[in-house]
Nucleic acid binder design. Structure first.
Lengths: 218, 218
DNA sequence: GGCGCAACATTCTCGGTAGTATGTTTATCG
DNA sequence: CGATAAACATACTACCGAGAATGTTGCGCC
């Protein structure tokens, strides 16, 4: 009875923290939306609060600064990427297929988490020049390191493919950059349309990945 | 004698306009630098003036607003691109080679005019939401149209190559986006280093173009 | 049933920036 | 040489947004 009542009237500690995390996540979601729509600097804290029908107070209760929110968005975006390619990495398949599958997975995540991916594109290193505190610099360094780590996943497969002979690139570094550019470019031209189905996105992802890996030549 | 003196002591009207254009260009150059370093909104008019060892007064004498400066930078960036690929377009060569040469030329211009190309990447359509006046919207529309026109140059060659059978892409639209993403991505990772020679840039451009056109597959 | 604390809302301040208004110098032209 | 205008510099205003300070509410717990 106590247990039952608890779930209805009072709140267990786990429920409380769950609600906190939820509120936290809502703010990050709203921030990603605002950053995408108005840009990093033009999006104000009030804008973010407005999306949630709340005020600045709520936002500043969960985040120390606007930069902290941006970091949270960035971190989340990277996590989405890692989660998307991880299952592909773990699979055992030829390098040619694997790099194409990874590219397709990345393309999917670009479309599926568009607000996040667009946000991190609008700032990255350049955002926060000078005005950054020491602790913020550390977070920034961590995020950049994470991005390098992520891109290394691709370069590793490229290198393996070259050594196996299944892939042929004159320069792994440049090939990796090429891939990332082509894939991340999605956020610049892909537009969400209501009538688009999941299959449509999958098709775009596959076609893009195929074009990158197999090239344009007949 | 008068003619000779004129060129030394007094200034002919053409000299005057030339100097005006020069001052104009200096401001645009400085703006591109600032935009690249600090971002579009964080770069202030004073920053731009500082680069020129001047003050706001000079900038506002030549440009009505900050947006107008951005437009000038954008326009110039596009012009650099057009000028770079124009000679390639006019040449007669197989589509496979042509698209690769165009890609290499574009890559070159990305590196050679980095401040401009980075600037236009940081704003484009999203920059100026709402606060834009009607006349500014028109300029913006013109710039976007120009960009489409530029990208059409690539799509045209792609289509021709497909119809000829020398190129094989499942989707010209996506292939074009892929190319642009891979090429424009250069501004994100390319860093100018003093020891870099012209040959180094050329090598990067060629390798990148080759990788895009021929793909990663062996 | 009041105490404390978390989760907000409200209000204010302060720094910074686009844009303006006005002063000052330099050069062209009658 | 004197007038006139371009090409700036200087000084000022008006506004906006981040962050802080403070006030308010509601839930959990002794």
């Amino acid at each position: 009875m106590v247990g039952k009542m608890q779930s209805q009237t009072v709140e267990s500690p786990t429920d409380a923290t769950a609600r906190k995390i939820d509120s936290h996540q809502q703010i990050v979601d709203a921030a990603a939306q605002c950053f995408m729509l108005k840009g990093l600097e033009k999006a104000t804290i009030d804008d973010i609060a407005d999306v949630l029908d709340a005020t600045k107070g709520r936002v500043y209760h969960h985040f120390r600064s606007k930069n902290a929110i941006y970091f949270a968005v960035h971190r989340q975006a990277m996590q989405y990427c890692f989660e998307a390619v991880k299952p592909v990495i773990e699979q055992s398949m030829p390098c040619t297929e694997k790099i194409e599958a990874m590219a397709a997975a990345h393309a999917r995540v670009m479309m599926d988490t568009l607000p996040y991916q667009r946000s991190i594109r609008l700032g990255v290193e350049m955002y926060l020049r000078g005005s950054t505190t020491e602790s913020e610099r550390e977070v920034l360094a961590e995020l950049i390191a994470q991005r390098n780590e992520y891109e290394d996943l691709y370069r590793d497969v490229l290198r393996k493919g070259v050594s196996e002979g299944s892939l042929s690139v004159p320069n792994v570094e440049i090939a990796g950059r090429m891939m990332m550019g082509a894939l991340n470019g999605l956020v610049d031209w892909y537009r969400v349309r209501p009538e688009q189905t999941d299959a449509d996105r999958e098709d775009i992802a596959r076609t893009l990945a195929r074009t990158i890996v197999r090239g344009l030549k007949a």
